[in-house]
Design a protein around this nucleic acid. Sequence first.
DNA 1: GTCGGCAATATTGTCAACAATATTGTCCGG
DNA 2: CCGGACAATATTGTTGACAATATTGCCGAC
Lengths: 240, 240
Amino acid sequence: MQTFDSKRETGSTATVVTADERDPEFEGSTLEAVIEALRRRICGGALKPGTRLQEVALAEEFGVSRVRIRDALLALQQRGLVDRQKNRSAIVARLDLKGVFEILELRENLEGLCVRLAVENRPAESWQYLVDLFQGPMARYAEENNVEAYLVEVERFRADLTLAADNSILNEMLSMLRDRTRNIVDRTTMLPGRIQQGVKELQLVVAAMRSGDGAEAERLRRENIRSQRAFVQRYQNFLL
Amino acid sequence: MQTFDSKRETGSTATVVTADERDPEFEGSTLEAVIEALRRRICGGALKPGTRLQEVALAEEFGVSRVRIRDALLALQQRGLVDRQKNRSAIVARLDLKGVFEILELRENLEGLCVRLAVENRPAESWQYLVDLFQGPMARYAEENNVEAYLVEVERFRADLTLAADNSILNEMLSMLRDRTRNIVDRTTMLPGRIQQGVKELQLVVAAMRSGDGAEAERLRRENIRSQRAFVQRYQNFLL
DNA sequence: GTCGGCAATATTGTCAACAATATTGTCCGG
DNA sequence: CCGGACAATATTGTTGACAATATTGCCGAC
């Protein structure tokens, strides 16, 4: 059983802000820090799609000026995480089913490319730790349905791949795509049987990596994403 | 403490800007319009990489406030077209050879995906006009080395494909990637033999599209991009 | 003459007040 | 009781002035 850490539920209206609610951590923070903080909240599910993001409330909460919040919201809009209209509060972007499939279609390609590039850039032996990881701890997590630990390791797995792929723009795009579907994909992992199948598929991927077969690793990774998509399709009512 | 004399020209702000260099076209334009205008200038080569983009100068030129320029520059930074550092002027982003290859690697995948999705979404007969285009006018442009007309048509070809692919996020990403390499890729077309080879390759692509073979069209389009990359590699000293 | 420091200038970053607009609440007639 | 017009409030958009910082030009020591 897994519980996402239930942060303070700001709910719909946190208009009246007393000094207690100010988060001193971001006092006078840089723009990037604010962007990153908001990004985390949105991707982590603390701010649900449709939530109004009011500039003054956020400004007081973060202890920064309103313009900085405005800039952050603009950046997040470019990133696709929030929607903005003139003279209306920004809201956390909603993602319909078509959007999810569009992103998964892209991720199928790009995650595949990512793993192939990683294999091409590193000696095959260097992937042994992933074989061990997926046959040891990860298999155990799957048995125990330990979704949280599984997700943490998968995240590191992906981070290692993007690092090895050594393509900053691919990196950036994958980061964006993952952000926009993180909620849904993470919940997919909790579906019955998904985590076990996921581990099985990724075991094949890392095996191909270990043997230095980039093309095969790419094919298997794409298959892995397609399998994810099948789960989303099947359980769409539950996920959205 | 300064006195506010009550000038309430709400409709028309009587700014004391010399009218010489102002471009009245953008007077009071929306943020998106400013972003688009700057984007065009950068992609079109009017603003070369490394050019300083000073906020006040741009603000006066476009006849908009400085904050709007700031917002536009922030958006273009997210898009990868400009670089910004704290307390320094934004500059048009420089792209090194590695960056070009990174982008071409991505484009190889995504343009391929794009053409495959387009084929899957439309009846094969609907592509007849492309067969005609590439065997008629485009072949002529190649013979005459009419690079300009060729580029215009290729641009429309790409626009049609992205429209048919019907994946807004893919659209957005391809648009971004094309923007960042437009200068270099356009110049590639002028290299000896490139335009003829390009037409030949694209003739094969549209033939596959016309026969409804999405997978083959994808493969051929990827080959086409790889061929572009080979030209860039070969003539890198001239191009950069 | 050249280099390093120092003042002068130019440019971006920040802030608070104000304007424009949307949202909410209220009142009245049906 | 309901709906629509209208006022009150809340929220975003814009402006200009000011502060912080980088760049440039200058001067003197060596």
